[in-house]
């Protein structure tokens, strides 16, 4: 794959228009209406759940137990009530700490590995890359028992450390994506750097890193959101210690632990979704390009 196959967002219409056969106007108009009507219907179905969740979040608890759709009164206080009945702030802080530190460590450790795999020829490179793919694709549950035992022997199974520390040693998925991207950077750039007498480290930092910025941004975003959404990891390691709960853990046990009704549960759900959606609108381009990167063609 090459970088220029990543489509720019606006190019949809220019590059793929259905073949124009000579047709009578009405048919084309009908076709136009049909596909836009379908798109609008689909859009309603995609947005529906979010709207219903938001509406329920504003109901009284009694009304949330009925099948009515529209709030009789608008209870904005539900949102502030969550902060008083649950340690939501603590969950947010923990989630931020987990996501940010894991992302930073992942970048520091994965970029050099990807660089070595993509830009340096050495014996065993192919094997190393195969192992990266294997680690990326094998379900984490396969090795969960011994790893849990390992962390337990260090007394860390009541914290988020078992999720953060491994990032010091690189993340297979990020290495894979970064490597794929770095392969597409033409050789001439690093050759030029070498002629100037730069070593591998300097070449990596000065030449390749700036050029790989889109891929780095993408893996950073993915890692951040993976951590932000992660449930399995915190459930395994942090659930015994309420002080290190993340948002995912909190929201999942919200209804059970705090004996609350659907309205507050939905309000909490909205609060968890909001930052993610805001970040998306701020960094939409990075998102879309990043996702496109993952759809690697062989």
């Amino acid at each position: 794959m090459s970088a220029d196959t990543v489509p720019a967002a606006g190019s949809a219409q220019d590059r793929l228009t259905p073949p124009s056969r000579p047709r009578r106007m009405p048919r084309a108009t009908l076709y136009w209406i049909a596909k836009h009507a379908l798109a609008i219907a689909l859009a309603l179905m995609f947005l529906g759940p979010l709207v219903f969740i938001a509406l329920t979040a504003l109901m009284t608890d009694a009304q949330a137990l009925t099948s009515q759709l529209w709030p009789q009164s608008w209870n904005w206080g539900n949102f502030s009530e969550i902060f008083t009945t649950t340690p939501l702030l603590r969950w947010i802080v923990n989630t931020m700490v987990y996501s940010l530190s894991a992302t930073a460590l992942m970048l520091a450790s994965s970029v050099p590995v990807a660089y070595a795999l993509a830009r340096i020829r050495f014996r065993g490179r192919k094997t190393a890359f195969l192992l990266v793919i294997l680690m990326m694709l094998l379900p984490p549950q396969v090795v969960a028992v011994p790893i849990y035992t390992l962390w337990a022997s260090m007394g860390l199974t009541n914290s988020l450390w078992p999720l953060i520390i491994p990032m010091v040693f690189g993340d297979a998925f990020s290495i894979f994506l970064l490597r794929q991207f770095m392969l597409t950077i033409p050789r001439e750039y690093s050759d030029a750097a070498r002629v100037d007498g730069c070593g591998e480290f300097t070449t990596m930092l000065r030449v390749i890193l700036p050029m790989a910025r889109p891929a780095i941004a993408a893996v950073a975003l993915f890692q951040f959101f993976y951590c932000w959404n992660d449930y399995y990891g915190p459930l395994l390691y942090a659930s015994t210690n309420a002080d290190s709960w993340t948002l995912s853990l909190g929201i999942a046990s919200f209804k059970a632990l705090h004996s609350v009704q659907w309205n507050l549960t939905m309000a909490a759900t909205i609060l968890v979704m909001a930052p993610v959606i805001i970040v998306f609108f701020l960094a939409q381009k990075v998102f879309i390009e990043g996702v496109t990167l993952t759809g690697v063609k062989g």
């Binding site: 859009a43 947005l47 929201i251 968890v272 998306f280």
Partner: peptide, 22 residues
């Protein structure tokens, strides 16, 4: 439309799941 169709995939798994159960 692309934004609308993409948006739900950003909803945190836990939140989306709890929402759907409701």
């Amino acid at each position: 439309f692309r934004t609308v169709f993409f948006l739900p995939s950003l909803v945190p798994t836990v939140a989306g799941t709890v929402g759907f159960v409701f």
